[in-house]
Design a binder for these strands. Structure first.
Lengths: 124, 124, 124, 124
DNA sequence: GTGGTCTAGACCACA
DNA sequence: GTGGTCTAGACCACG
């Protein structure tokens, strides 16, 4: 799996990495148990400092998406918690996106159309 | 309309103001043509630096949500562009939220349920 | 409030800082809303790098003990979640401590005696 | 007695082994004089490097929980020191756990309730 | 060789 | 001036 960083983005690099890995898991490009690149390898591959990669991995670990282990390196967690709900933070973001959609005249069906487009993407 | 700042939020204050005004327009608490408080008045009301309010207004103006006028002060724009589409940035954020929902086991219908909950809120 | 680092400890510095601040809140030496030293100030005071202090503050923020804000600096959170329960991790540690106590012949009352000694310490 | 390693734990493997053996002695699953598996046997059983098992055994020996003997292999010590006290390190950890409990609103009785739950477990 | 920690510097957006 | 991010290097315990 390839990580692509946006250059002038206001999203910090470590969060871009985190986001892309979560999306990779979501759409099946990364499968449970799969080994991720080592901190150093990924850092070199995308040309950044290894502490930044480490920060991304720490975040993913804390969120329960991966496990890190000196023996096995870094792996996608076998069983990710199926809470079937958004975090409060994510829901708030969604509410904002919906507000912005409405203000530009999008109907509920317009919006759900976009949702469906992304929902059908990738694994399952 | 009342602006409420979250204390320890990681969202910058100027963006919180901007977001709340957009949401106010979206749900009808602010109507086209309605006069907004002056920079100084709003700054004092919520107890922050007026530079910060100014920044929020500049952003809203640039995004086409409000118009400023030396005579009339700041008003909600009469005709906000009805592009009926999300910005590329917003769509990318939505894609990320959907990924996170999927990875936690939410189905398309679960997600659309949340969308509907927010869509029915407020004006229109 | 003074932070004292143990030199040869196997507990990382950032965690020592985190622990001492939590204990400070617990025994009333730090009160809700109280301002903590800035990242740089604390770093200089205890003679370590500011990134290490930052790491400690990030952890405390994530755990809900403090709020950080560009306007106000760092403050003890006003309302810390009163879950009235230990984390799974903490409970596991306690279980281990109890095992070690039992194996050395401590009775339940011996152990509760030690608990009481610490429980009565500091603000309620 | 079966040793189970936690996959993504931040506790080093050798310490996990040490802890589980101490807990085994504490709750009676291992009795004084009982023979433990050889380093090599245990290493193979749980699928790790024998250096790691060796490290755990060395630690247990140094702490006075087991004795090693060229003829008899490794055995649980017949008479473990009944100091009836916690090590300074353990007491410090307990103090920290109590702080964290208090800060989350646990009362002394709440905490002692958890202690009792674990104290009644297993032998004695 | 791995992840984890720490340092000494630097730059940035925010307020 | 504040927190937040990032770099380039280093050291450590673990396995």
């Amino acid at each position: 799996m390839i990580i692509v960083l946006q250059d002038g983005s206001d999203i910090p690099v470590f969060k871009q990495i985190r986001n892309q890995i979560v999306m990779g898991i979501s759409d099946g490009r990364l499968v449970p148990g799969e080994k991720l690149p080592t901190v150093r390898a990924l850092a070199q591959e995308i040309g950044i400092n290894s502490m930044t990669v480490n920060k991304a991995y720490q975040l993913l670990k804390q969120e329960g998406y991966i496990v890190t282990d000196r023996r096995n390196g870094v792996r996608v967690k076998e069983s990710i918690d199926q809470t079937r709900g958004l975090t409060a933070e994510a829901e708030q973001e969604l509410a904002r996106l919906i507000s912005e959609a409405k203000v530009k005249g999008m109907t509920r069906d317009d919006f759900v159309g976009v949702v469906d487009r992304y929902f059908e993407r990738g694994g399952k």
